[in-house]
């Protein structure tokens, strides 16, 4: 069993790359922490009755004045930093993952169709993609958030905040998928198995999904991983700028925004701990992405 596993190229490469192993461990740990936050976090930071201002601004447990009840200290409202971070990561990761999924569906769908159908449809989709590429992702996201603020009544906008942010991020990330899918389809389309399928009279949709898609999954997976990191960063940036999630359901970016107030005052943990956490998360996912790229692109090895 073990030898069979070792013979698998991917696993073998993985065991040879300490960076990939570390990144995988860090990512897994954070994802698990976020997923199981309600069970492992010491307190629920969304439950107003579960924290008290009396515990406000306590330093981490290892510092003078810290309390073992609050391993990473507390913020200005007396919320446990560890719990806030775990819940924040949960929110950040789920928004990023949802945005990723939307971007993937949209991008791959359009890219596949454009590549396979070609012609006018291809031209239109790719020009839209070009325009989208000319806009920085953060600008697109701000634009969508701004428009939704303008057209939706305030209560509704507050309720739809997570949806709006997810869509905003998804719309700024779909281009990569579309372009990659289209380019891969171009390569695959001229291959014999596609010609064979066409000659057998199969429906174009079936050819796209059953024959071509499985063969271009590799590069898409690489992009998905790297873009997941971008999505997390984008969500953090939006929340940091104050257009993201509100202070009573803080994502990592919101936590960092709140912590900014304490940049100069000596309560370093309120800013630095969520920041370091975010950096570790993004670096780990990026390293995994690099590893996958190497794996699916033997020429780069």
């Amino acid at each position: 069993m073990l030898t069979r596993l070792m013979r698998n190229e991917g696993v073998w490469l993985f065991t040879r790359s300490p960076a990939a192993i570390l990144a995988a461990i860090a990512t897994l740990a954070i994802v698990a922490g976020a997923a199981f936050a309600p069970w492992i976090a010491p307190t629920n930071p969304y439950d107003l009755a579960s924290f008290s201002l009396i515990d406000g601004l306590l330093p981490p447990a290892w510092e003078d004045g810290g309390s073992p009840r609050f391993l990473l200290g507390t913020d200005d409202q007396g919320r446990d930093m560890l719990s806030s971070i775990l819940y924040g990561a949960r929110l950040s990761l789920s928004i990023a993952a949802m945005a990723m999924a939307v971007a993937l569906l949209l991008g791959v769908g359009l890219g596949l169709a454009a590549g396979y159908l070609g012609g006018r449809f291809d031209a239109i989709v790719m020009r839209i993609a070009d325009v989208q590429l000319a806009l920085p992702a953060i600008l697109t996201a701000l634009l969508i958030d701004g428009i939704s603020r303008g057209i939706l009544p305030r209560e509704m906008h507050d309720d739809l905040r997570v949806t709006v942010i997810t869509l905003a991020i998804a719309l700024s990330l779909w281009v990569n998928f579309a372009r990659t899918a289209r380019a891969s389809v171009f390569v695959e389309r001229s291959k014999d198995y596609v010609s064979a399928a066409i000659m057998m009279g199969q429906h174009p949709l079936r050819i796209m999904l059953r024959h071509i898609l499985p063969n271009i999954v590799g590069p898409l997976l690489v992009i998905a991983t790297v873009d997941l990191a971008s999505a997390i960063l984008l969500e953090a940036t939006l929340s940091f700028l104050g257009v993201g999630l509100p202070a009573d359901s803080p994502s990592l970016g919101t936590l960092i925004r709140i912590g900014m107030q304490y940049l100069l005052s000596g309560e370093w943990w309120i800013l630095w701990i969520p920041t370091v956490f975010l950096v570790v998360l993004v670096v780990a996912i990026n390293l995994l992405g690099d590893f996958l790229r190497d794996l699916f692109n033997p020429g780069m090895r």
């Binding site: 439950d47 107003l48 009755a49 008290s52 201002l53 409202q77 007396g78 202070a247 009573d248």
Partner: peptide
């Protein structure tokens, strides 16, 4: 911050 603290105290 004061409003949030008030909310947390009222929650109790």
């Amino acid at each position: 911050a004061v409003c949030r603290a008030v909310a947390s105290m009222l929650a109790r």
